[in-house]
Lab assay of single mutants.
Amino acid sequence: ELREAFAKVDTDGNGYISFNELNDLFKAACLPLPGYRVREITENLMATGDLDQDGRISFDEFIKIFHGLKSTDVAKTFRKAINK
């Protein structure tokens, strides 16, 4: 299930999730959020999830993000976006 969610976000299939891919995910989900809020959520996920600070999120980092977000608003938003 997590591998499928990761693949859905990794639209270019390079094995990593970029800032733009995350941002595009939230935009495509048509969530009722202003653009600046989408950017804040994306920046927050990148800042906390990109553990090796290479500017992208690997599958291992994605798993840690996903499990670390349990019930936060960001987690709910992220799950809604993935499930669209």
Rank of each mutant, 00 (worst) to 15 (best):
I63Y: 07
G68K: 15
D60R: 06
N20K: 11
A28G: 05
T77N: 14
E43I: 04
L2I: 02
L51I: 12
G15Y: 00
A7S: 15
R56K: 14
D73L: 08
L25H: 00
L45N: 04
L25V: 15
T72R: 10
I17G: 00
T42Q: 09
M46Q: 14
I57N: 00
M46N: 09
N44S: 11
A5G: 01
G35M: 12
N44D: 11
A7G: 03
T72N: 08
A47C: 07
L31F: 12
Y36N: 15
V38S: 04
R56N: 08
G49N: 06
F66H: 08
G13M: 04
L25E: 00
V74Q: 13
S71P: 08
G68R: 14
C30R: 14
D54I: 06
D12A: 11
P34S: 06
D10W: 01
L25N: 01
R39W: 02
T42Y: 11
F62Q: 00
K80W: 03
P32V: 04
F62L: 06
L31T: 12
L25A: 11
E40F: 01
A75C: 11
D12T: 07
C30I: 05
F6T: 00
R3W: 05
I57F: 08
E43Q: 12
A75E: 13
L51G: 10
I41F: 08
L2M: 04
D60S: 09
S18N: 15
E1H: 04
K27A: 09
D24V: 05
Q53M: 10
Y36V: 11
R37V: 11
D10K: 00
T48M: 09
S58Y: 08
C30M: 13
L69R: 04
E40W: 02
D54V: 09
K84W: 08
N44T: 13
I65M: 08
T48N: 13
F19A: 12
I63H: 04
K80F: 04
F6Q: 01
F19Y: 06
I57T: 00
E43K: 10
I41D: 02
L45H: 02
I63L: 14
R37N: 10
G49I: 06
G55P: 03
C30L: 09
K84I: 06
L25F: 09
M46V: 13
A75T: 14
M46A: 13
A28L: 12
S18F: 06
F66A: 09
L45P: 02
K84S: 13
I65G: 02
N14C: 05
D52H: 13
A29C: 15
F6I: 01
L45A: 09
K80T: 12
R79L: 10
R56E: 10
N23G: 14
D10E: 01
I63W: 04
G13Y: 01
P32D: 15
L22S: 00
T77G: 12
D24S: 06
G15C: 01
F78T: 15
Q53A: 11
G55F: 03
K8F: 06
K8C: 04
L45F: 10
R79A: 12
A81L: 05
K27I: 09
C30T: 08
T77R: 09
G55N: 07
E4V: 02
K70W: 04
R39S: 06
A81M: 09
N23Q: 14
G68L: 12
A81Y: 05
R39K: 13
Q53C: 13
A75F: 07
F6D: 01
N23L: 11
Y16M: 03
V9D: 00
T42S: 07
F26V: 08
L22V: 03
T48L: 07
V9R: 01
V9Q: 02
S71V: 08
D24L: 07
D12G: 05
D10N: 02
G15E: 02
K84Y: 12
D60M: 03
F62T: 04
E40R: 04
I65N: 03
F59Q: 04
A28E: 14
E61F: 01
K80I: 10
S58L: 01
F66R: 01
R79I: 08
D60E: 12
E61V: 08
N44M: 08
F59A: 04
F19R: 06
M46Y: 07
D54F: 05
E1D: 15
T11R: 11
P32S: 09
G55C: 06
E43A: 08
A75K: 12
F19M: 12
L51V: 12
F6H: 00
G15W: 01
V38W: 05
M46I: 14
F66V: 14
S71F: 05
E21K: 12
S18T: 14
T11Y: 03
L33A: 08
T72C: 12
G55L: 03
G15R: 01
Q53T: 11
S18E: 08
S71N: 09
I17N: 00
F6A: 01
K84Q: 15
D24C: 05
I17A: 00
D52T: 14
D50A: 11
F19K: 08
D12V: 03
A28C: 06
D54S: 12
F59S: 02
N14H: 08
